[in-house]
Design a protein around this nucleic acid. Structure first.
Lengths: 112, 112
DNA sequence: CAGCAGGTATGACGATCATCGTACCTTCGT
DNA sequence: ACGAAGGTACGATGATCGTCATACCTGCTG
């Protein structure tokens, strides 16, 4: 649980968003990895989850096909009290749905 | 005062150290830029101070030859409450003086 | 005045990073 | 059995970053 690694992980907007959404849920429930509306392709999403995992911010469970993530809230609050509050309080540019192309999961193969 | 920029700035150990030392001083006094014992050369130190300034974490005053920095404690605490506490509380590897070469300011031109 | 100490600007270099395409694997539904 | 859907692994690529050398500027001091 290194501060440098944590800050580096949270320097990216997509990763910050994931942690913020997890932290905003008071129940601390698991969430499907695909349930985050990130503006990146599948491979990049996998990469981001890996970075968050290596930073010690989330745990990930593999279910064969889908996988789920959970916030390591207790560890974070113990070592870095108040950090999650900063993320939850961050003003988001536009929480609403994207307007460009209606989002599918990994879309737009222009000519397969 | 963007969270991404702030986290990116604090992802570097040298910059984190500067902010932590400034934050550890309850008086909020200015400090000479050269008074930080950073393991980098002059130009790099200037670069780090610029990053911290661009992130909105410090202000810098030019005195002709030397210059001084001051923590923007009020702004930080207003927008990111608790952040400075995390930095001050961070365990530092070795706060004692470096042992390798006794530090001069910009030393060691092996054979000019 | 000459030299030095502290800072900055500029340009370069190597490393890391975010992103993606592709290939592959696993499970579920038909 | 077969395909679709969700994830991962493995490069590749372009951008950014940390670091430094060098050159230059400013003010203090012998």
């Amino acid at each position: 649980m290194d501060l440098g690694t944590v800050f580096a992980a949270l320097a990216d907007a997509s990763r910050r968003r994931v942690v913020a959404e997890l932290a905003a849920d008071p129940g601390g429930r698991e969430r499907a990895c695909g349930s985050f509306d990130l503006p990146v392709k599948k491979a990049t999403r996998t990469h981001h989850f890996r970075v968050l995992r290596d930073a010690g911010l989330i745990t990930q469970r593999d279910h064969g096909n889908g996988s789920t993530v959970a916030l390591r809230r207790d560890d974070i609050e113990r070592h870095l009290p108040g950090l999650l509050a900063l993320l939850v309080a961050e003003p988001r540019p536009a929480t609403g749905p994207r307007d460009g192309a209606p989002h599918s999961t990994d879309p737009a193969p222009t000519a397969p």
